[in-house]
Simulated assay, not measured.
Amino acid sequence: MRTAAQCLLCIVVVGCKPAATSSEDATIITSSAETKAEPTGDWQWLFNGASVDAWTDKDDQAIGEQWQIIDDALVLTAAGGGAVVTKQSFTDFELELDWQIAASGNSGIFYKVAGPDSKVRSGGLEYQLLDNDNYPGHDNPVHFTAALFDIYPPELDAHLPAGSWNNTRIIVRYPHVEHWLNDKLVLQFELGSADWQKRAAQSKFAPEHVLGANEPGHIMLQDHGDRIAFRQIRIRAL
């Protein structure tokens, strides 16, 4: 689920690298040699398993100590770490990453999160991450993994169970947006369309946020209180 976030972000912020932690502290994490591979073409790393220099917290401070690098993954080990946000903003882009959620876990990947120079006010759009099989009380498809949270449900179920590594891609070519999960296109929609406007107006975000503008925005990884791991986070401009 989404947290209320009125992000006032600086683009240039001094980052902090969490202390590397032994895999003994993360029983569901397994290492991947691919994590430190160099990106090709126009891709750039947001997290390559070694550094969080591309990230800050939502208040332009060092990210919380509850975020730790464990076996080349960025892991929220306990609640209280806060959301982590990219220092850089993006307009049209392709984002790709792997994620692994704990049993009964809930989290999210936000994009188009407004910065201080944005002409619009937006807490961003949420690609939902959930243990669909065990999370209590979530029986609405607009809250399932790969949904645009509270607005569009995924059109098919491609999630792997909690403890597995899932692969996500988010493609934004304004106004077209695609959500991919484990190499399957599970959702696509048009920002600003009549259907979009109707659904957004009926969601939990209206009228507090202006969503879907053709503006640069930041990527944000949520702290929903549940253990979540991310690895091989890369992005390219489109």
Rank of each mutant, 00 (worst) to 15 (best):
H176P: 07
L156H: 09
G124N: 02
L187G: 06
V12Y: 13
T35P: 10
I101P: 03
K87E: 09
Y111C: 05
R231Y: 12
F230M: 07
S164T: 13
L211I: 06
I70G: 01
H159E: 10
Q66I: 00
R169T: 14
I63W: 07
D131R: 01
D72I: 04
G49A: 12
S104H: 03
G212Y: 11
Q197I: 13
D72A: 10
H218Q: 11
L125N: 06
I170Y: 08
A213Y: 12
R199L: 15
H224R: 03
Y174S: 05
A114E: 07
P141Y: 08
A229G: 11
W196L: 08
L160I: 02
H179W: 02
R173I: 15
G41H: 14
M220D: 00
K36S: 13
A102T: 15
K87I: 04
T3P: 06
I233Y: 13
G49E: 01
S31Y: 09
Q66S: 05
P39W: 03
Q188K: 08
I171W: 11
G80F: 10
V186A: 08
A78C: 04
Q232H: 12
N214F: 05
D42K: 08
I219E: 03
Q66G: 00
P136K: 00
P161Q: 12
R236C: 08
Q128G: 10
E96S: 15
G124F: 04
C10S: 12
C10V: 04
W180Q: 14
I171H: 14
V52N: 05
A194V: 07
E24F: 15
T40W: 00
R173Y: 11
A162D: 09
I101H: 07
S118P: 02
A54K: 04
D25F: 15
A19L: 14
D133N: 08
A147W: 03
W45P: 10
G124E: 03
I109A: 01
L148R: 12
R169K: 15
A206E: 06
H224V: 04
R173F: 12
A20E: 04
A4N: 12
Q100T: 06
T21S: 08
D42E: 13
